[in-house]
């Protein structure tokens, strides 16, 4: 089973609740979230680029009030010039759950949000 199928549906559901959620997918060569893309094509940015570029682009998106969620980036620290911008980076961790993931999305400022990976 594809490990990211579940994530795709979770984010598609969350996008209903978080109207400002914008996904930035850095996976190469193909997008990770086909379901999300089909449901919200305008809230999705396929950007297989260097992590630093993706983070600064996310900063630009966040500066107009959106909530960018970066998927597929290999970074643990959000290194941007303005850390008050609401940027979230998705990482996988077995110890967390969906409720804490949602709670982390509501938190102010840049940061890493954790979500359990489907086995």
């Amino acid at each position: 089973m594809n490990a990211f199928v579940n994530l795709d549906f979770i984010l598609s559901k969350l996008a209903l609740k978080f109207k400002q959620l914008v996904l930035i997918d850095t996976n190469f060569p193909s997008p990770l979230l086909p379901n999300f893309v089909s449901l919200y094509p305008h809230r999705y940015l396929f950007m297989p680029c260097h992590d630093a570029i993706v983070l600064e682009t996310a900063a630009g998106i966040a500066s107009l009030g959106n909530l960018p969620l970066v998927i597929g980036a290999n970074v643990d620290i959000v290194d941007i010039a303005d850390p008050t911008l609401n940027i979230k980076i998705l990482q996988h961790d077995k110890s967390c759950d969906l409720a804490s993931f949602e709670k982390a999305l509501y938190c102010f400022g840049a940061g890493v949000v954790l979500l359990p990976k489907e086995e």
Binding site: H42, I53, T57, G60, I61, S63, L64, N66, D82
Partner: peptide
């Protein structure tokens, strides 16, 4: 960004272009 009229906080070269890309995408989304 705390200075009136300045839209972006920057401290490195070439990152402003990335931020401008993000802003233009946000304009397109909204």
């Amino acid at each position: 960004r705390k200075t009136p009229g300045i839209e972006v906080t920057l401290n490195k070269s070439a990152y402003g272009i990335c931020v401008a890309l993000g802003m233009a995408k946000a304009v397109q989304i909204g």
